[in-house]
Design a protein around this nucleic acid. Structure first.
Lengths: 355, 355
DNA sequence: ATGAAAGCGCTAACAG
DNA sequence: CTGTTAGCGCTTTCAT
């Protein structure tokens, strides 16, 4: 009768204990740095564990009540569209959140949530795989997000501040940003400004509001024909500008809802021989890293992505610590570069801020 | 004597069992869709659990041997530099991996590993928080990565194929890419090509090899002065080009190790009045989304990011299934746009491929 | 300063 | 088909 072939199972605490000639509890104490344990024993055990690459099983630790130091980052996901994982702004936001989480010693679990079964955003928390969730974007789920808050799930949201909001959100002051952008274009002499972006999305709608407010503040009539609701797809922006160039209406400036769209628009203008900013001024939104290296360098409205990442993480951790977390509206900054004319005419000087 | 305030602890299986008037095992079976269980009971229990938002505790499940369906994505992290979380190429790669993982039903745990304690890459696996790891980039850790392989950690690596490699890697054919890039520049008339990138990194070294091979193949002497080892920081590239412009040596083309560096170099050229491609041709590497919208549109060598994400995930899963996974060299594609001259001179026609 | 022993919440034999 | 029971690998009293 052959002996059972020794199944080379994963190393566990009992093995370390045997090798160190101590009890399992002593190993546990050594590894968790328990105070009353002779420094010598502790040292010896830790060294042994390290040299054997032993690590405590996370599942067993969880069962003993220990929380994983993991934060989930969830984003609504459209199977056909796959927008977020391709969008540089969202990716950059994930990066900023990642940086902030590293600084606070957490790890980051990414989950893509199909719009259909939105309730899955809470799954990692319910199964205790994470201590809380950062949700990227509200989309059309405002009510369901409120429901999560009622259930006591710890989470914060990147997005617009909405009416009757029971949860903590962090987002840019899009209305201010839109106001700044259009104000700057008008100061450079623009009168017919194309708004390139889809105002059916809440954040774009706010930028559009700011845009209209800036026109109003300067006594310029707005032309609905100039609002072109393209999706966040560079190719679509490019084609839209080509169409406008071919069939009108005329325009002397473009306010694009993102830098990517602005760059695509500039490419269309360059292809048709229009000069930026002499013939057409262009302003973007976001201030992605490459805006500064564009030709001409792109004037834009900066969103504070790093600030957003930190704020989201801060607020989530505050919540977890039992504190209340206020929603935050991050200020936007006008970054003037070469794609707009900055020579403002005397007498047309605008108010500095939109309130 | 007041009764103990009922601690509202997390809902657990016993609660569901009590409410459904069945035993705990029945609940367990219902939720895990056990075959022999009356469909009616099963249905009833599942509904109850769902309505109470009950989810099985992941820690307890792990203890019973169930694996979390989580894959870790690790990248070497330089605390001062923070390159990866900012780099569009790496972010895009993370996105591509994320897409592939979603398709296979896994979730993604992001971990940043400081170059110092590289051994932490294995931690999530050792603690059983993940079933395997995708490591982004080898940096200077080749030997330690080999050591991980010896220990039997399941992982795959995005990076170069190196000598004496005990692990599975997926990476672009950098030598081919370098060959294509420089070949194309020479065909456009370039003779003095700046190589902008740090050949001490394995992947850049291979691109540099291809660069030199292309020069050799066309009988052009290479000038070591023209290899400028800048790090992956656009500002550094910009300053390097400014320095070159000011103090020489002369050059008539730039081969940048990434599109970001190429764009920064173009910005420096534009600022000094040099025309691209008439005075200086520029070619990049990666083909990030914005390359096409640059002015002029950037000629570049495309890396197949989506293919890379899929390949990395495929190979990791194959490994986990006990199969062997071959390393993969992804072909690169020359994408000719406006930043180079494509008029090749007869008689200088190169071989189509580098072998 | 260390060891023995009782669970943590769940799953899977093994009974019935 | 459903219930009873014995652990999974660890932490933490309680004892020594």
């Amino acid at each position: 009768m052959a002996a059972e072939p020794p199944k080379p199972s994963r190393l566990q605490m009992a093995d370390i204990a045997r090798l160190a000639n101590v009890s399992i509890s002593t190993v546990s104490r050594a590894l968790s740095n328990h105070p009353r344990l002779s420094a010598e024993t502790k040292q010896r055990i830790r060294e042994l564990a390290r040299s054997l690459h032993y690590s405590v099983d996370a599942g067993a630790q969880m069962m003993r009540g220990k929380q994983l130091q993991t934060v989930a980052v969830a984003f609504p996901y459209h199977p056909e569209q796959r927008r977020h994982f391709k969008d540089p702004f969202f990716l950059a936001l994930i990066g900023a959140i990642g940086d902030a989480l590293i600084d606070s010693g957490h790890s980051m679990l990414i989950e893509a949530v199909e719009a259909d079964d939105f309730d899955r955003v809470a799954k990692p928390y319910e199964t205790r795989q994470c201590i809380g969730t950062i949700l990227l974007g509200q989309e059309h789920h405002h009510d369901r997000i409120n429901a999560l808050a009622v259930r006591g799930i710890p989470f914060v949201v990147w997005g617009a501040r909405l009416k009757d909001q029971l949860y903590c959100s962090v987002g840019s002051d899009n209305t201010q940003g839109g106001f700044q952008a259009t104000g700057h274009l008008v100061d450079g002499g623009a009168r017919r400004i194309v708004f390139l972006g889809d105002p059916s999305l809440p954040e774009i709608a706010q930028r559009h509001d700011g845009h209209l407010a800036a026109l109003r503040a300067r006594g310029i009539e707005s032309d609905p024909q100039l609002t072109r609701p393209v999706p966040f797809v560079p190719q679509a922006a490019r084609e839209e500008i080509e169409r406008l160039l071919a069939k009108g209406p005329d325009f002397d400036a473009i306010f694009a809802a993102s830098d990517r769209l602005a760059l695509a628009a500039m490419a269309a203008l360059a292809a048709s021989g229009r000069r930026v900013p002499q013939d057409v001024q262009v302003i973007g939104f976001d201030d992605i890293a490459l805006a500064a290296d564009a030709n001409p360098p792109l004037t834009t409205v900066r969103q504070d992505i790093d600030g957003a990442g930190k704020a989201l993480v801060d607020r989530l951790l505050a919540k977890l610590a039992g504190q209340t977390a206020e929603s935050l509206l991050l200020p936007t900054t006008l970054i003037v570069r070469g794609s707009t004319r900055s020579d403002s005419r005397p007498g047309l000087r605008p108010p500095e801020r939109f309130d």
